[in-house]
């Protein structure tokens, strides 16, 4: 048994999901609360763009011929999820960089002294800042495609654990949003969020505690959705995918991936954070330690899920 895709791809699928999920979450919270959280999408872009760039580096590192990576951008092949994914990654990162530049130009305070290069740049691009709203809708659509693609990449193959199983993209999307929101919570709960807020000319005001509370409840809902999809995926694999599907389930539940699956995906990634969150949500004030712990565990669980499915899928 040879593994063509190893840890680089595991980490890549994980952080691409986090990046897309973080912007997805931040954008929706801002829109659904009537634009009361304009700093959230900014913080999300600022964290997700570096993640996507890091992920792309891992992807290139994993190639057999790294210096030919640019070949990816000479073709647009709808039938190939990897081709579509490369373009989605590129556009997500580029669009994010443009959004950061526009936000920055809006908040840039030119110093009273002589104009600097930066202030000139800010003055030149500031008129374009009006389109940042449209760009954030585009970024949202790209985020959805990005997190969907990490699952489609695997299901458009002929490996029994992945092949043609429609619940695999669903599982990866659920996990991506869950881990993306966990990262947002971590960023907001540690001073990093305020730092980023300052960077965009905000005053570093914290996110209202009601919002943090609602995010906690949303995280519980996401955990439950993920469990439902995960169970559906395993059942589909075990009973509707023939002998090879059953063998794939055995790899996950009792075979070489069983420790990662039961310990990492189920216990660390789903059960413990859910218990922590439910306990925490009952109190009036969330216990910061418990929130940080559950967010970190959800993030780890996402990594274990990618490892179990990506590595295990090549062992069937």
């Amino acid at each position: 048994m040879t593994l063509t895709w190893k840890w680089e791809l595991v980490i890549y699928l994980w952080i691409a999901g986090i990046a897309g999920g973080a912007f997805f979450t931040a954008f929706l919270i801002d829109r659904f609360t009537g634009r009361k959280h304009e700093q959230l999408p900014k913080i999300a872009v600022f964290t997700s763009v570096p993640l996507v760039l890091l992920g792309s580096l891992l992807l290139v590192f994993d190639l057999g011929e790294q210096l030919r990576a640019w070949h990816l951008f000479t073709r647009f092949r709808v039938s190939s999820p990897m081709s579509m994914g490369s373009w989605i990654l590129l556009l997500f990162a580029l669009n994010g960089v443009v959004m950061i530049a526009l936000w920055w130009s809006k908040s840039f305070e030119p110093s009273e002294a002589k104009p600097t290069v930066l202030s000139r740049v800010a003055r030149v691009i500031r008129p374009a800042a009006a389109v940042v709203g449209i760009l954030s809708w585009i970024e949202f659509a790209l985020a959805v495609l990005l997190i969907a693609y990490t699952g489609v990449l695997l299901s458009a193959t002929n490996q029994p654990m992945w092949s043609g199983i429609l619940l695999l993209p669903a599982l990866f999307v659920a996990s991506a949003i869950s881990t993306g929101m966990a990262l947002l919570v971590l960023v907001l709960r540690t001073g990093l969020g305020r730092l980023l807020n300052h960077l965009f000319g905000g005053k570093g005001e914290p996110i209202p505690s009601e919002t943090m509370h609602t995010m906690g409840i949303a995280s519980i809902a996401l955990g439950i959705i993920e469990i439902v999809v995960l169970v559906g995926y395993i059942v589909w694999l075990a009973f509707f995918s023939g002998a090879a599907g059953a063998a794939a389930v055995a790899v996950l539940l009792t075979g070489p991936m069983s420790l990662i699956f039961w310990g990492g995906v189920v216990l660390v990634g789903l059960v413990i954070p859910l218990v922590l969150e439910v306990v925490s949500a009952r109190g009036k004030e969330a216990v910061v330690g418990s929130v940080l712990a559950s967010a970190s565990l959800i993030l780890l669980g996402g990594l274990f899920l990618r490892a179990a499915v990506l590595l295990g899928g090549q062992m069937v």
Binding site: P81, A148, G151, G164, L166, L168, P169, A174
Partner: peptide
């Protein structure tokens, strides 16, 4: 259908 599955889940 796989793309659709991911997008619908989102």
């Amino acid at each position: 259908a796989q793309w659709l599955s991911g997008i619908v889940t989102a």
